[in-house]
């Protein structure tokens, strides 16, 4: 049994351009870990999980750390830190759901170091921002040797190929969107979400035109609570309907037990989080 304090051996590369990064990754797709903020990667490497020959840092690649307002969307570079997003006036104004979720992620240190790209790419329980981006219909730009392409965040893990990495997140700005975000964690400001629910509702008054509900703490195929969304569409968001949708979301969600919580309890939590997030969307500012 080995207990390490030091990082393992690896070679550190820090390409100075997107092109250089893409070609390095193309050349060593299976031997390279791409590092953004490093909070997740270095933590895992100290536990000797997922150690590869190279660590390719994106810190020296220019242009990945900007937030830009474009027509109909906000573009967020993959190296923008979670805290920068939470603080950015344009995000707070145009994508309140994302700003709120970023502010609720981790701690001041983690938010100052961790990046949106890293959070999206890690595909772990710590990726609290992913359900939020799915609910917002966000897209991710992937860079590769053959140039870049854009995929929806929802499809990201299915889509991403060896040699590609995330360079940008595109969040559409939708007028009249109501939203809610709830996460449950034992220590609410320290722990990553055991489960979470992000909802985005389009509509006027209480009638829901369209709804997106995305979940954290569930298996990939059940990230979207599609049946719950259908229940809401075209109907008035009464408490009874919200409970019905939340129950459907929990029923469909596939959760797994972890060392502290059973799969059944997580399902129960999903129901509560979805219902509270929906109530939040209906009555902004009120306790769920």
């Amino acid at each position: 049994m080995y207990y390490y304090r030091r990082l393992p051996q690896f070679e550190y590369v820090a390409p100075g351009s997107l092109k250089e990064a893409a070609s390095f990754l193309q050349a060593h797709p299976r031997e390279t870990r791409v590092m953004a903020g490093g909070t997740i990667l270095l933590h895992r490497m100290k536990e000797r999980i997922g150690v590869k020959k190279y660590v390719m840092s994106l810190k020296a690649v220019p242009g990945l750390d900007a937030i830009d307002k474009a027509p109909g969307q906000v573009k967020i570079g993959s190296m923008v830190t979670i805290q920068t997003i939470a603080d950015a006036p344009v995000v707070r104004r145009q994508c309140g759901l994302l700003a709120a979720a970023c502010q609720m992620l981790g701690t001041p240190q983690i938010r100052s170091m961790g990046t949106i790209g890293g959070n999206v790419a890690c595909n772990l329980a710590t990726a609290e921002i992913v359900p939020v981006l799915i609910a917002l219909d966000a897209q991710a730009t992937l860079a590769g040797a053959k140039g870049s392409r854009t995929v929806s965040v929802e499809e990201l893990y299915r889509e991403v190929r060896d040699g590609e990495f995330v360079t940008e997140i595109l969040v559409p700005v939708k007028a009249g969107q109501a939203w809610g975000y709830e996460k449950w964690a034992m220590r609410k400001r320290f722990d990553y979400a055991t489960v979470s629910a992000a909802v985005a509702i389009a509509g006027t008054g209480r009638v829901c035109k369209d709804a997106k509900i995305a979940l954290g703490g569930v298996t990939l195929p059940t990230r979207r609570a599609r049946r719950a969304e259908e229940i809401l569409k075209g109907r008035s968001l009464t408490n009874r309907l919200i409970v019905e949708a939340a129950e459907a979301a929990a029923e469909d969600a596939r959760t797994g037990a972890d060392i502290h919580f059973t799969a059944e309890y997580k399902k129960e939590l999903i129901k509560v989080m979805v219902s509270r997030a929906l109530k939040q969307a209906v009555s902004p500012g009120k306790e769920g």
């Binding site: 220590r187 609410k188 400001r189 320290f190 060392i259 502290h260």
Partner: peptide
């Protein structure tokens, strides 16, 4: 033992 870190062994923080 599966709870050998501050992440898994949940001691209280200021917020608790």
């Amino acid at each position: 033992k599966l709870t050998s870190t501050y992440r898994t062994y949940k001691v209280p923080t200021a917020n608790e």
